[in-house]
């Protein structure tokens, strides 16, 4: 996949219904939207109208949750067919899902679950992604997730695991800088080293949002303003990669939209490699 040919989309937000009016009133500040594919599968007429409306005003990227690319049992073909139809309708530059599994034994587990970083797991990903790519011709990019445990059975690091999958499947990377920062804090590794190990030329898109502190751990709640440490990860990635787009993911604890716009402006500055120095922790 020639990732360099993908268009630069800029900075956008993950579309949520409650942002709808604000998004339309601030169209000139929002470059593109990421829709959650699953919200529009088997959609009612209102949701279909909404999708048409969004498509008429913004470049859209579809982001699915349930391809379950890490499931040893394979891809749910019915779900894949629906995703493929939606992607064909939306006609995005690329579409994305996660490096995880969400189904086991045909049962949805309702969570983005990590897999052990093993050669066996890589084979599963390669097989499943190959099936997806046979059906959907739009470039697929894969997102790194957060995890709460390091599997003892893992045979390699997360970065090496991601690198191998990307190399073998020729997919791009949706680097969630918040997830990277959270994992680095929870498991005490240096996110800069992680960046050194992954194929940065494959980074197509970023996700960013603030982390949420839960006891001693950070979790990816999509409920807080992006903090300085995460902006630093963003800035570093923006300097080292030719990013095509970045999406602010906010799902809970919604702030006034002006705060969202401020974050988008900050991301714009960083994408342009503005010399704004290192962010200091608040």
């Amino acid at each position: 996949m020639n990732l360099e040919k993908l268009a630069k989309l800029g900075i956008g937000i993950g579309f949520r219904e409650r942002f709808r009016a604000d998004i339309f009133l601030n169209q000139d500040l929002i470059d593109f939207l990421e829709i959650t594919t699953d919200h529009y599968l088997d959609a009612n007429p209102q949701k279909k109208d909404e999708l048409k409306l969004l498509k008429a005003h913004f470049p859209l990227i579809s982001h699915s949750l349930e391809l379950s690319l890490g499931s040893a049992e394979g891809i749910d073909e019915e779900y894949l067919e629906k995703v493929a139809e939606l992607v064909e309708f939306v006609n995005p530059q690329w579409f994305s899902d996660h490096i995880c599994f969400t189904k086991s034994g045909g049962v949805k587990i309702g969570h983005l679950a990590p897999v052990p970083y093993t050669k066996e797991a890589i084979k599963v990903f390669v097989r499943n992604i190959s099936k997806v790519k046979q059906r959907v011709k739009t470039p697929l990019i894969l997102e790194n997730i957060t995890y709460l445990v390091n599997f003892p059975s893992s045979e390699m690091s997360e970065a090496a695991f991601i690198k191998t999958i990307l190399d073998e499947t020729d997919c791009g990377l949706l680097l969630d800088v918040t997830n990277l920062y959270i994992n680095s804090r929870n498991f005490g590794f240096d996110w800069r080293k992680f960046l050194d190990e992954i194929p940065l030329e494959r980074v197509v898109q970023l996700h960013f949002v603030g982390s949420h502190k839960h006891g001693k751990r950070l979790i990816d709640a999509h409920a807080n303003k992006t903090e300085a440490e995460i902006w630093n990860v963003f800035a570093e990635v923006a300097k080292r990669c030719d990013i095509k787009g970045a999406i602010l993911e906010r799902d809970e604890n919604f702030p006034p939209f002006t705060e969202i716009l401020e974050e988008i402006k900050t991301a714009h500055c960083l994408m342009k490699n503005a010399n704004i120095g290192e962010f200091s922790a608040v």
Partner: peptide
Amino acid sequence: LERLQTAFDNLKYT
């Protein structure tokens, strides 16, 4: 008009 009303539907509540 329908499009406008779809776009700003949540605005009438907020």
